[in-house]
């Protein structure tokens, strides 16, 4: 499978709560190809966030193998995982998760600082990302708390794109936004996907599934329905 960008084999994640073992994921097999737009759906507690964390290398499986671009992530050290995330994965969160002490444009520049891009190139790239995410340049020097939810999420998207990731992971990206703003954010993701970026969205909002070409439904840590592509 040369074009599979995410490959999960029999992935299990067990949390121990007191004497109980809880299976957040139970033997999940999943392959996502380069350029896919995947929606992961399911009720709360179905394991969809855990699945996203696995793909985002924020968490490691109890059992099974997670491969990103062909690399088995369990073989990587903490700092190697960080580098993998930095160079390959862009995160978009429900809470936007911008750094409050940094201005909008500095938030976008932050991942580029970590990848040691030089200051002039960084600023140029950040401005073009502002443009790409439909953000007005006049907001560049605003702090996150001076921006609306939609603007903050656009900044977060611009930040996610900073190091030209191959995968965008979005956890309920419209969860804190009104319907109209949510739609524009999804259009932005759709647009990115059309340029070749793999987009994976976790949501329980049925409408978001319409943007994707594959929808995965999770329940009790297991995939019970996968649709799209050939449908």
């Amino acid at each position: 499978m040369p074009d599979s960008i995410v490959d999960l084999q029999n992935v299990t994640k067990v949390y121990t709560l007191g004497s109980n073992e809880i299976y957040a994921l139970n033997g999940v097999n999943l392959t996502i190809k380069k350029g896919d737009f995947v929606t992961i759906m399911g009720p709360s507690g179905s394991g969809k966030s855990t699945l996203l964390n696995m793909v985002g290398c924020l968490d490691l499986p109890s059992e099974g193998i997670v491969r990103i671009n062909g690399t088995d992530v369990s073989t990587l050290s903490d700092d190697e995982l960080t580098t993998l995330r930095r160079d390959n994965i862009g995160f978009i969160f429900q809470q936007f998760n911008l750094i409050q002490t940094l201005t909008a444009i500095e938030n976008v520049e932050m991942p580029m600082i970590f990848s040691r891009m030089d200051a002039a190139a960084r600023r140029k790239k950040a401005l073009s990302l502002f443009n790409q995410s439909n953000l007005e340049i006049e907001y560049a020097d605003h702090r996150p708390n001076e921006l609306s939810g939609g603007q903050q999420q656009r900044v977060a998207i611009a930040r996610a794109l900073a190091n030209n990731p191959t995968i965008i992971l979005a956890d309920e990206p419209t969860g804190n936004l009104d319907t109209k703003t949510g739609e524009s954010i999804m259009k932005l993701l759709e647009d990115l996907n059309s340029k070749g970026t793999t987009v994976i969205v976790v949501t329980h909002d049925q409408r978001l599934a319409e943007y994707s070409n594959t929808t995965i439904r999770l329940q009790d840590g297991e995939i019970y329905h996968e649709s799209g592509e050939n449908d």
Binding site: G56, L58, D78, D79, T82, T83, R85, R86, D87, F91, F93, N97, L98, I99, Q100, M110, P111, F114, S115, R159, A160, A162, N163
Partner: peptide, 16 residues
Amino acid sequence: TKEIGIMKAVGASRKE
């Protein structure tokens, strides 16, 4: 703590 988590998610190494 949360800010540190965000930074680590977007690529800050331990050293940074």
